[in-house]
């Protein structure tokens, strides 16, 4: 169980958090303008790299805020966390 540094609350146990998958996948501005392939990419396809991965977490048992993290999926280690809309900090 890792310690995850919630950008609002500080370090907390992993069990307090909810995972949200890849970060920076915005809901399309005009879904109706997308073709089926483009829409499928939004609905079902996400990056799955081995290595650094920009992803979203939510401090479910704490402040309940979503935040972004950069984490290495090969080591599972968090490289940085930052509040929504902020730039990543190492």
């Amino acid at each position: 169980m890792q310690l995850i540094a919630c950008p609002w609350c500080g370090e907390r146990e992993e069990a307090e958090f909810h995972y949200g998958g890849q970060a920076h996948v915005p809901y399309p501005a005009k879904p109706a303008d997308l073709d089926d392939e483009q829409w499928a990419q939004y609905v079902f396809f996400r990056d799955n790299p081995k290595g650094p991965f920009a992803e979203r977490w939510m401090h479910a048992a704490g402040c309940r805020r979503w935040f972004d993290a950069l984490r290495d999926t090969a080591t599972h280690q968090f490289l940085s966390v930052h509040r929504m809309g902020e730039e990543p900090r190492a």
Binding site: R56, M58, A60, M84
Partner: peptide
């Protein structure tokens, strides 16, 4: 509730 909070924070802040 989770879903509403998620979208409110991440899509439509």
């Amino acid at each position: 509730l989770d879903r509403m909070e998620e979208w409110l924070q991440t899509e439509w802040p």
